[in-house]
Design a protein around this nucleic acid. Structure first.
Lengths: 140, 140
DNA sequence: ACTTGACCTCAAGTTGGCTTGAATTCGCAG
DNA sequence: CTGCGAATTCAAGCCAACTTGAGGTCAAGT
C-alpha cells in the first residue's frame, strides 16, 4: 500500500503541512493512519486536495466543501442539493465570462468613456441581471 | 442630475451602507458629493458596484478590483495586464466547469466508488492539470 | 419648533482561513 | 546508540473584509 508522509503530500500538492493539519481539523482530509505520531496519507488525499482547491476557487467555504466531499469520499448531500450547487456554479460561470468580456472590452475599446460605448452598455445590461451568489440556498 | 443617498444605493444594490462606507475608505467608490454630511451618489455607482461584485466573485481582492476600475472609472492598468487577468479568468472558468461536471457526476453516477468510474477518473485527470490561480502574475 | 429617523464618525469586534513559534518526539542513516 | 531533520501539539498571531456600537448631526415632515 502506497503511503505518503505529510511532507510528500505537501510537495506534490503544493499545500503546506500547516494547512494540511488545519484541513484535517476541519474534517476535510484524514490520514490513513499514523506511524508513531506521523500522519500517513493515501494517494486519494491528493485527489481530495484537488477537489478542495477547485471548491475554493468556486468560493465555497471549507465547511461547504467538507459536506460536498463527505467524510468517506462520498458526498454528504442529497442529489438535488448537489444539482442546485451545480446550477449556482453555472450562474457564477456566466458572471465570470461576463467579467472576462468586460475586461477585454475595456482593454481594447478606444471610446473615451465606456458609458457611451454600446457594447459596454450591453455587457452591463447583462451583468445587471446576474445577481451575485447569495450564500443561502432554499433551506428545507 | 439624479442623485441617490446611501440608503437608496444600499436598497438598489443590496450592499449595506456600512460596506459602502468601507468601500469608499478603500477607494473603490466615491460619492459625487455631500448634502450636509450625507453622501450623495450618482447612478454610475450602481454600475461600479455591479463590477465590484463580479470582481469579488472572481476572487479578486479589493485592492485589485480598485486598480481594475480606476479612481476615475477607467482602469489603472496597462492593456496587457488586463488581458493577462482575462486569461487567468479563462483558466478559472475552466476549473469551475470541471467542478460543475464533477458535481453533477457524483450526483448521478451510481458507481459504488467514483475511484472506479472511468468518467470520474477522466474528470480528475483533467482537473490535475489545471493548477489553481496562484495570485502572483509575471512581474516584469 | 420639534421630533424623528436616516445619516454621520471612529474605534473596536468578528469570522474565516491560515501561519508562526515554542517546546517536544520520533524514525532512521551512520 | 546517537544525532539530525522532519513531524508533532497547542496557543497565539495575522490579514482581509466587513459589522457593530456609542455618541453625535441634520433635513424634513407635522
Amino acid at each position: 500500500m502506497k503511503v505518503l508522509d505529510i511532507g510528500k503530500v505537501a510537495a506534490q500538492s503544493g499545500v503546506p503541512p500547516s494547512t494540511l493539519r488545519y484541513y484535517e481539523e476541519q474534517g476535510l482530509i484524514a490520514p490513513i493512519g499514523r506511524k508513531g505520531l506521523r500522519r500517513q496519507y493515501g494517494p486519494q488525499t491528493l485527489l481530495r486536495l484537488t477537489l478542495i482547491s477547485m471548491g475554493k476557487t468556486a468560493g465555497f467555504s471549507l465547511p461547504e466543501i467538507a459536506q460536498m466531499l463527505g467524510a468517506d469520499g462520498r458526498p454528504d448531500l442529497p442529489r438535488d442539493e448537489l444539482h442546485a450547487r451545480a446550477d449556482d456554479l453555472g450562474r457564477q460561470i456566466r458572471r465570470l465570462q461576463l467579467l472576462q468580456d468586460t475586461l477585454r472590452h475595456v482593454a481594447d475599446c478606444p471610446a473615451p468613456s465606456h458609458l457611451d460605448c454600446p457594447s459596454f452598455q450591453k455587457l452591463m445590461r447583462q451583468a445587471e441581471r446576474t445577481s451575485a451568489r447569495g450564500g443561502k440556498r432554499a433551506s428545507r
